[in-house]
Design a protein around this nucleic acid. Structure first.
Lengths: 130, 130
DNA sequence: GTATGCGTTGACGCCGACGTCAAGGCAAGG
DNA sequence: CCTTGCCTTGACGTCGGCGTCAACGCATAC
């Protein structure tokens, strides 16, 4: 399988695959003419990357999962290093979500206050409009 | 007040102020020698920018608040355009937080499953270790 | 005079994950 | 022979919000 087919089957671009190779994430064998050659295992690895990327993992964070699969384990998260990434990500997510929730509440309060101020000045009557 | 003092009083950098000016957010008067000159109102505007930035607003999103203040309103969020930004941001935050929460749960489930698989294979006994 | 400290503009660097264009090679089909 | 279509490497562009030089000017203090 050449790069174009792999890209199509994984729903990504050839540029992306070359980028992954340059980053050492998904190295490719070469045919005699220099063309990159991939097999079904590469497709599996690529899908692992894409799945994790969809979860918001950085490329570097997917590396342990790939190494785990290459080591012959049934799943990318069958290795301690992968679990460590999961836990780190979980903590990051909790932290981020917590901060965003705080911001959300502050913005909501600001909005409520500003709406009240505007409504109170522009339409000081009660909202009993027929 | 010159750029250095304003930067110091707002806890930012001169580079940042020049950047804001280039973006048209915080234009500066000029002294005879070409030096930027700011007053207390500019400090107020700058603080408005910084506060919104801390909330995760993009620079462009702070513009309505600045225009509102420049128009003489008591607060940056006293104008409809600012309220619209608040509402948009609130919706964005809700959406983002929701998606992150989904991801968080998926990661947690993956982690739980992988931990169970690993624990079950490597230490299949119950955790009654003395 | 000169060292210090403020200011000025211009321009490149950074981060992440690629997109996009350039210039070329090689193979099959008409 | 020429086109089409796949591939190659290399290199610059993107986005946001600045950081970090570079090279210079002007002013005050010593």
């Amino acid at each position: 399988m050449r790069i174009g087919e792999l890209a199509k089957r994984a729903g990504t671009s050839t540029r992306t695959l070359r980028y992954y190779e340059a980053r050492g994430l998904l190295p490719a064998r070469r045919a005699d003419n220099g063309h990159r050659t991939y097999d079904e295992d590469d497709l599996r690895l690529l899908r692992e990357i894409r799945t994790l990327q969809d979860f918001g993992f950085e490329l570097e964070e997917t590396r342990p999962f790939l190494e785990c699969l290459r080591a012959g384990h049934p799943a990318g998260d069958s290795c301690p290093a992968s679990l460590a990434v999961y836990r780190r990500k979980l903590a990051e997510l909790d932290d981020l979500i917590g901060r965003l929730a705080d911001v959300r509440d502050q913005v909501e309060r600001q909005l409520a206050g500003a709406e009240e101020a505007a409504g109170g000045a522009a339409a000081p009557r009660c909202e009993m409009t027929p």
